[in-house]
Amino acid sequence: MNSFQQNKKSKKTLFFLTVIILLIATGDIFSGGLIRVSLRDSVSLVNGGVYNMVSAVSSAKIFSSKQALAKENAKLTDELRRFSSYRIQNEILKAENEALRSLVNLQEGNVVGKTARVVSSLKSSPFSTLIIDAGERDGISENDYAVMEGGVVVGFVAEVGEYSSLINLLTAPAQKSEVLINGELVEMTGRGGGNALVQLPREIIVSENDLVLLRGSGFSAGVIGNIKSTPASASQDVYISVPFNIQAQEFVTVFENLL
């Protein structure tokens, strides 16, 4: 076969595949995402297995030297000490939080969430989405809150499969959500990379590390990271960030959306 024939054949293959993709894509859209949900279930199963294997190998410390283990031991002892002090602080904050919750009539803290494992890498997703290994069969439904470390809502359930669900982060580009900052109800827009933006009138006084609450959830949506305002503008740009690295989180707790 000469290069002209080869070229013609490869073009034919490309064209044929483009048509097939177009047909499947149309089928997926018209079936309401049936194909993607089934595919996500399979990916969740495979990825879950891979992550289990990786964590089993790393926890077995097969590749660690004695010195590295001694170093890690010292680090963990230090961490344990730090965490016991955090635990006491946490108890105090919990009591204070309960008192505040009753004041603002938010969702009660005794609502039980469903813990699920994150089976996709956030850095691999160009759309700030996560896949978790819990779905319809575990009682997950659309628009439920996905909560991580310290009761911070990182996103909500966008699509549910039988064994897996897709979480859309609040900080996903152009994602809009209603939040409360110092009692003021405002719209937060995701900017990607774990950040979101709120435009507030300049009269509202806010400062860095102020808590941002997700409307009607009783959970925090992050903290104020940076404030930018110019004397010429009537509003100020308030940047909201999640106080931890979402990529490093292995688990997520899903709470029912009562709104």
Partner: peptide
Amino acid sequence: PSWEVMLIAFFMDLVYLPIGGFF
């Protein structure tokens, strides 16, 4: 003339992208 990369891209869209799309 990589048709495989088109399939992988399609797979990524199906896995990571909500049905509403991106913007």
